[in-house]
Design a protein around this nucleic acid. Structure first.
Length: 543
RNA sequence: GGCCGCGUGCCCGAGUGGACUAAGGGGGCGGAUUGCAAAUCCGUUGCUCGAAAGAGCGUCGUCGGUUCGAAUCCGACCGCGGCCUCCA
């Protein structure tokens, strides 16, 4: 059965048929780099990565391309390094610039000594702030196995930065004006360019927020006092002239900054196109209202207004027939991640970043599995218990892989090929069914439970499935070696703990188990779990 | 007010009309291992009766409906989450 995916645009799951299965184009709305990416951001990026890896797997079958044939996904994920306003509701852009907010965070970290050593950064320079968080994001993304971030090292085009595409945004806006979809208000010194939502009857098709349904007063976006010269309350900002702004660029409408939807229009069109480098946005036109690329993804909160506005802009600017085009064939929106059953929010203080988890000693592979193992269209819940479960699963599969590799030297046996074929088929069937990852993992475990002695052929299958799951290649932190044993990643070898462990070793040597058990209880009370291993040594972890 | 997603066993989570009425994981229980633990491996895990094979009853938010048959389809209701400001 070929791959079926739920499409936000059609509100239904249909077989996915890219224009060219040998070159599938995929654009993901990435991170605004004014802070570290949190696990919610990564859940959505990893869902996109899982889709991309599945499309590239030989096991994946498409309605217009059989399984087993090589396939390439051109996956582009942008980096928003322009500081859009924290309050987008007022028509002329209010609130604080996000890069300024990011700079403030850096300044605070500097003051409290939390900034990593060796980092010299000017918190008032928005470009430096963006650069700082971009570097951290790329590192986290690669640790998490985001293929697009790994590719970025050799092909920067797959992760374009908004500040590098301002000319493309300006060209896009010019085309919107000349095609009658945008207009300029105000006089030099305070000009604003708006998109004219009434010029496109299909506005609202993605989100269901058609113009008649966008009621005044529910949010604040459509509010009379914020209109500032708009022709319709839902018209949105494309360019704002503002010479005092933190980040500004010259344009035909004066020095200022772009609206927050237009960057994706410019980057998506350019970067997914085969002739990206030479593509001239001035003349680029998509015939007959066809989609410009195959897949567009982003968190569910992006559906409105961001993706709705992006469709409107892109189709109005580049499609011969703007009304009939959905910009992308497939709109893929992973749901939000809850943490311990609650929505993450800064006020509750329950934010977790990938970097924090890794620094605490959690394995990258376990974090990745925990974030991908719930179906992308459910609200997943991130918990400590879940993270433990995932870590254990990863360990189990790794042990199996190691055993299979060990068997390579002395076992010419093929093993149970029929069982492997069944696993492969069940895994594929689950993934083809709207990325049923839990079903796919169950298929893997059912098979793994049957394999008593892993053989080389089993290792081949494990690697084949892991090309999709993306777990084996994640970096593994190593614990710190000491005389008494090894301290797990994230656990500092406290001298007090070492003294207790030495005392316990002596007690055990004397067979004074009452004392040794008392010490173990004492360590447990301090939050340490210990495990005895060969040679009188121990492994120390957080309890 | 509009649009959308969801509600499964102790917990997490598959299953979208029929092989006993729920995959897989966790937890629990039993065993191997260990001085004891931890980790790992094996078995087991709705209830009642039975030593056992087995038999009976029950379960998928609630209430109705469709059907020979429903966790699965339809309707109503209850509850949770998201969007309609910024957020992945």
């Amino acid at each position: 059965m070929p791959l079926t995916i739920y499409n936000t645009l059609t509100r239904s799951a249909r077989p996915f048929a890219p224009a060219d299965p040998k070159r599938i184009t995929f654009y993901t709305c990435g991170l605004t780099v004014y802070d570290d990416g949190h696990i919610g951001n990564f859940r959505s990026f990893l869902a996109a990565d899982l889709l991309r890896r599945w499309l590239e797997s030989p096991l994946c079958e498409l309605v217009n391309d059989p399984a087993g044939s090589p396939r390439r996904v051109v996956h582009v994920m942008n980096i928003t390094d322009v500081g859009h306003m924290t309050d987008d509701d007022s028509a002329d852009g209010g609130g604080e610039d996000k890069m300024a907010a990011g700079g403030r965070r850096i300044a605070e970290a500097k003051k409290s000594g939390k900034l990593p050593p060796g980092v010299e950064i000017d918190p008032t320079d928005p470009r430096a702030v963006a650069e700082f968080f971009t570097g951290r994001f790329l590192r986290d993304a690669r640790d998490m196995g985001l293929k697009v971030a790994i590719e970025q090292a050799t092909n920067p085009l797959v992760m374009p930065r908004a500040t590098d595409h301002v000319p493309g945004m300006i060209v896009s806006i010019e085309r919107l004006i000349s095609r009658g979809h945008a207009y300029v208000v105000g006089s030099p010194g305070s000009r604003v360019v708006y998109f004219d939502v009434r010029s496109l009857a299909s506005y609202g098709a993605l989100s269901g927020n058609t113009l008649d349904r966008l009621r005044e007063g529910e949010g604040g976006r459509v509010r009379a006092e914020n209109q500032a010269g708009k022709r319709h309350p839902s018209d949105f900002l494309l360019w704002k002239e503002d010479r005092t702004h933190l980040m500004k660029w010259p344009s035909p409408w004066g020095e200022g900054y772009p609206g927050w939807h237009i960057e994706c229009t410019a980057m998506a069109v350019r970067c997914t196109h085969p002739e990206a480098a030479s593509l001239d946005l001035r003349t680029f036109t998509v015939p007959d209202g066809l989609p410009i690329f195959d897949i567009h993804s982003g968190g569910e909160d992006n559906i409105f207004p961001h993706h709705e506005c992006e469709i409107a802009q892109s189709c109005a600017a580049f499609n011969a027939l703007p009304e009939g085009a959905p910009l992308a064939r497939l709109w893929f929106h992973p749901r939000f991640l809850l943490i311990n059953g609650e929505k993450m929010s800064k006020s509750k203080g329950n934010f977790a970043t990938v970097r924090q988890l890794i620094d605490q000693g959690h394995e990258a592979a376990a974090i990745r599995l925990e974030l991908i193992k719930t179906h992308y269209r459910s609200n997943a819940n991130f918990t400590d218990q879940g993270l433990k479960d995932s870590a254990r699963l990863v360990e189990r599969w790794r042990r199996m892989l190691d055993a299979a590799d060990q068997a390579r030297a002395h076992s010419p046996e093929a093993g149970d090929q029929a069982a492997r074929d069944r696993c492969r088929a069940e895994f594929a069937a689950a993934m083809n069914d709207d990325l049923n990852i839990a079903g796919a993992i169950a298929a893997l475990n059912r098979w793994a439970n049957e394999v008593r002695e892993p053989l080389p052929g089993d290792g081949v299958l494990l690697r084949e499935l892991d090309a999709v799951l993306g777990l084996f290649d994640r970096p593994r932190a190593h614990g710190q070696e000491t005389d008494i044993g090894v301290f797990a990643p994230g656990v500092e070898p406290d001298p007090r703990v070492i003294d207790l462990l030495l005392a316990r070793r002596e007690a055990r040597a004397r067979k004074d188990f009452a004392s040794s058990d008392r010490i173990r209880d004492e360590l447990a009370a301090m939050g340490y779990a210990i495990k005895d291993v060969a040679g009188g040594r121990v492994e120390v972890r957080r309890a």
